[in-house]
Structure formats: C-alpha cells, structure tokens
C-alpha cells in the first residue's frame, strides 16, 4: 500500500485553488455593494461648500469614490468573518489538509479578494468621473482632480489593497476568536468602543499609526507586519480547534 506524502504548502495551494472556485460567487455581493456606493457617491457629494452674498451663490460639491472603497471594505469584513464560520470551514473537510493549510488557503483567498476589491474600488473613481463628464456641464467641472493622474490611480490601488489586507486580517482574527469562544463576539466590540472612550489618545495614535503615515514603503511595511501578526494569531488559535463537532 502506497502512503501518500503531502507537504503543507502543496495542500494549502490546492485548497486555495479549490476555494477560489468555491467562493467566486462572493464577487456578486461586491459588485452590488460597489454599484450602490457609486449611486451614493454620485447623488451625494462627499463635501459641499456653499458661499455667497445677496447677489451670488456659489456651491462647490466635492466628489470622490471613497465611499466605494469604504463599501468594499465592509464587503471584505463580511467575507473574512464568513470564512471563519463553521459552515464555511466544513467545506475544507473533504479535502486533504490540516487546520494550518485551511487557514493559509483562507489567507490566500482573502489577499486575492483584497487585490480584486482594492483594484475595482479604486477604478470606480474613473467611472465616477466619466459619468460626471457625460451627465453634467463640463464648464462646471473642475479639471484639476478630474484629470486623475495615472500614478495617483496606481497609488490609490496599492493603498486600497493594503487597507483591505489589514482589515481582512482584523476581521478574520475576530472571526476566529468568535469561533474559539462566542463571548468574544461581545467582548471585542466592548473592548474597542470602551478603549475609544477611555483611552482616546492612545486609540487615536493607533489610528494615526496607519492613517497618518505618509511614506508609502513604511505604510506598506506597517500594514504587512500587522496583517502577518493578526493572521498568525488566527492560525495559532484555530490550529488547536476541533472541527465538525
């Protein structure tokens, strides 16, 4: 009788391919979320400045596709949490692998989803501009940011992808904690909101640690490092868990 030798990486890669096919349907939800965000971005300007005197009224409406990115972040949060649920973990059972390969393939899928969501949501800035071009008088459109510079588009994509990766790591870790003990479902939000209230300064500096970083390589490093830690914690936690109880 031959005994099959498998290494962890091969098993993880196979599971990743399997999951990519299994979960592609989740893209539909992203598309709907982004379309919805596009409508909101178009109808409701993110910023509005109105000035005037009794003879003049000048309104400057500011538009951006930030809402699409935010909605896509919501999407990736739900995806990351969904992946940790028992229902989704059961999909791994007929496949060769361990908890580690299951987690690694989840991480792989989440990173793929981050890249996809980061790219598409950043491209919505382009779509929004084109729609605006055709629906409103161009003499009202301010050219400066309308002519989205290509390097900015790429920068936006990279940053969006990095944010998605970070947030998916956070959500995945939360999901795993919730699987370890349901109490975490309550503890984590209480902890976050509690520390927001009590340690406002500390939380702000944590927030600024990422959002306030203006040097891209350092920002990427911070994000990758944090995501790695969060995914690592998730992996260690779930490695001891039983499945399919």
């Amino acid at each position: 009788m031959s005994s099959a030798e498998v290494n962890l990486l091969t098993a993880s890669v196979k599971q990743y391919h399997y999951k990519l096919k299994a979960y592609t349907g989740l893209v539909n939800r992203l598309i709907i979320a982004q379309m919805l965000a596009l409508v909101f971005s178009y109808v409701g300007a993110t910023g509005m400045m109105s000035s005037g005197n009794d003879e003049l009224t000048v309104t400057v409406s500011t538009y951006s596709a930030s809402m699409v990115i935010v909605f896509s972040i919501f999407w990736i949060i739900t995806i990351a949490i969904t992946l940790t649920t028992k229902q989704y973990k059961k999909i791994e059972l007929p496949l060769v692998g361990t908890r580690i390969s299951g987690n690694l393939s989840d991480v792989g899928f989440l990173l793929t989803a981050s890249v996809y969501a980061g790219m598409t949501s950043s491209l919505f800035g382009v779509l929004l501009r084109i729609i605006m071009y055709f629906t409103s008088d161009s003499s009202k459109i301010v050219f400066d940011e309308f002519s989205l510079a290509f390097p900015d588009l790429l920068l936006g994509m990279v940053v969006a992808i990095l944010y998605m990766a970070l947030i998916s790591a956070m959500a995945y870790c939360t999901g795993v904690l919730a699987q370890v003990n349901m109490a975490f479902v309550i503890i984590i939000p209480v902890l976050i909101f509690g520390s927001l209230k009590v340690y406002t300064n500390f939380m702000q500096s944590v927030f600024k640690f990422y959002v306030g970083e203006t040097f891209l390589p350092l920002f990427a490093l911070k994000i990758l490092f944090t995501s790695l830690i969060l995914f690592g914690i998730s992996l260690l936690l779930s490695n001891r868990m039983e499945v399919n109880r």
């Binding site: 400066d144 309308f146 940053v159």
Partner: peptide, 24 residues
Amino acid sequence: GRQTFDFRQFNPDFTVNQFKGQTF
C-alpha cells in the same frame, strides 16, 4: 440678477489623500 454657480470638484480618494499630505 441673482447669480448661482454650481461647481463640481473631484477629490482624490482617501487612499491617495493620505500620501498627498492631506488626511481625510
């Protein structure tokens, strides 16, 4: 007569603004 101007301006997404020295 009363004049009204309505301008539409685009802002870079917050992801780009962060690296343009402007935070959201």
